[in-house]
C-alpha cells in the first residue's frame, strides 16, 4: 500500500494533540498498583497481550469508521449508532466504556475544529461516541486509510500505556521507547487483521462482523480501578 503519511495523520498520531489521553493509563495504573507491572519487561509482556486480544476491537472500530467516513455518498448513510453500540458490546467493562466515551468526546472537540465535515457532524449529533469511531472519522478526514486508522488506534494504546508506566514507575523512558517501537512492529500485523475484518463489516454494513476479542483481567481491573480511592489516572 502506498504511504499516506499526511500532515493530518502525523497530528492525529501526536499525543500532544488535545484528546484527553494523558489522563488515561490504558490499564497500567491498576496493574502497577498490584505489583503486576514493575519493570520494562513486564510492560512489554502486557502490551503484547493487549495487542493480541482486546487491541483488535478499537483497531477494527477505527478502521471501520474510517472506511464509512471515506465515502460520504455511500447509500444508505452509515448508521453510526449501530457501530457505536457494537463497540459497547465489545467492551464489557462499564468503566472502560465510560473511559472510551470520555476520550471520544475529548478528541471530537479537537476534530470538530481541525477537520470539520459531515461525518464529524453525524458523530456530534449522536453525542458521546466511542473514541475509536472519532479517531477513524478523523483519520479519514486527514486523508488516511482504514489501515492507517487501525494503526493509529494501536499506536495510542501503546503510547498511553508506555507514558503511564514511565510516570508511575520511573522507568527509563529511552528503554520504554524501545518497548514501544517493538510493540509498534507487532501492532502492524494486528492492524492488518483488524483492517480486513473492518472492511468486511463495512462492505456488509454489518457492525456485528467486527472482531470481539477481550482481556478479562483488563476488564476486571478497570472496574476495580474505577471504584478505588485516589487514583491518578481516570482509567
Amino acid at each position: 500500500m502506498a504511504g499516506t503519511l499526511t500532515a493530518g495523520l502525523l497530528l492525529l498520531a501526536d499525543s500532544r494533540l488535545p484528546s484527553g489521553g494523558h489522563g488515561h493509563s490504558g490499564g497500567v495504573e491498576a496493574l502497577v498498583e498490584r505489583g503486576l507491572i514493575a519493570t520494562t519487561a513486564d510492560l512489554e509482556v502486557f502490551l503484547d497481550g493487549r495487542l493480541r486480544t482486546s487491541g483488535t476491537v478499537p483497531a477494527a472500530a477505527a478502521a471501520a469508521a474510517c472506511g464509512l467516513a471515506a465515502h460520504p455518498d455511500r447509500e444508505p448513510e452509515p448508521d453510526w449508532a449501530s457501530w457505536d453500540e457494537a463497540v459497547s458490546a465489545r467492551t464489557p467493562s462499564a468503566a472502560l466504556r465510560a473511559a472510551s466515551r470520555a476520550q471520544g468526546a475529548a478528541l471530537l472537540r479537537t476534530v470538530t475544529l481541525a477537520w470539520p465535515g459531515p461525518a464529524v457532524e453525524a458523530l456530534r449529533a449522536l453525542g458521546g461516541v466511542h473514541h475509536p469511531l472519532v479517531l477513524g472519522v478523523a483519520a479519514a478526514a486527514a486523508g488516511g486509510t482504514p489501515l492507517d486508522a487501525a494503526g493509529l488506534a494501536l499506536h495510542h494504546m501503546i503510547g498511553g500505556a508506555c507514558t503511564a508506566a514511565v510516570r508511575l514507575l520511573g522507568l527509563d523512558p529511552l528503554a520504554v521507547a524501545a518497548v514501544a517501537a517493538r510493540a509498534g512492529r507487532r501492532a502492524e500485523a494486528v492492524a492488518r487483521t483488524a483492517g480486513d475484518a473492518a472492511a468486511a463489516a463495512v462492505a456488509d454494513a454489518d457492525p456485528a462482523l467486527l472482531p470481539g476479542e477481550s482481556s478479562p483481567l483488563h476488564d476486571v481491573l478497570a472496574q476495580l480501578h474505577d471504584s478505588s480511592e485516589a487514583t491518578l489516572f481516570a482509567s
Partner: peptide
Amino acid sequence: GCCPHTAIRDDITA
C-alpha cells in the same frame, strides 16, 4: 494522569 499542568494548559478537554 500525574500531569496537572497538562490538564489546565495543553489538553484542557477533560
